[in-house]
Amino acid sequence: MSGLPGLYNYWIAVFLMMAGFYVVISQGNLVKKLVGLSLFQTSVFIFYISMGKVADGHAPILAEGVTVYSNPLPHVLILTAIVVGVATTAVGLALVVRINEAYGSVEEDEIQARDNAADKATGRSGGSGESPRT
């Protein structure tokens, strides 16, 4: 596990992470943002799984003639993290659905524009908060 090529799965994790992060930041579409967020989380899953791999290790199942096993704990941990990730995506998508119902759009700038318009209509400056949910 020495030298850069030996660590290629970490490089993949880093690449995925940055790609996901970039999508979250650059995209105005809320669904795409969530896609980016999922990608970001997935990179961590790969990171954890790579971590548990022991060189020449086998799957951690007791078997004849096998003495070196990979570490199963990170894999188990990441199962939990995957569940968390799925839940996050689910909550996020639910929110996007609700936002779409309320604003008729899932584009960040359009939502912003509609909020500002609502502010002007009620004669308030930034962030009072009475506009009823449509």
């Binding site: 979250v24 967020l37 996050t88 929110l95 609700r98 936002i99 604003y103 908060g129 009823p132």
Partner: peptide, 18 residues
């Protein structure tokens, strides 16, 4: 009550998850 709660919550979700 305000619909802006939704976008506020989404923003929090993104930053919180990061």
């Amino acid at each position: 009550r305000d619909r802006r709660a939704l976008s506020a919550s989404f923003q929090y979700l993104v930053m919180g998850t990061i």
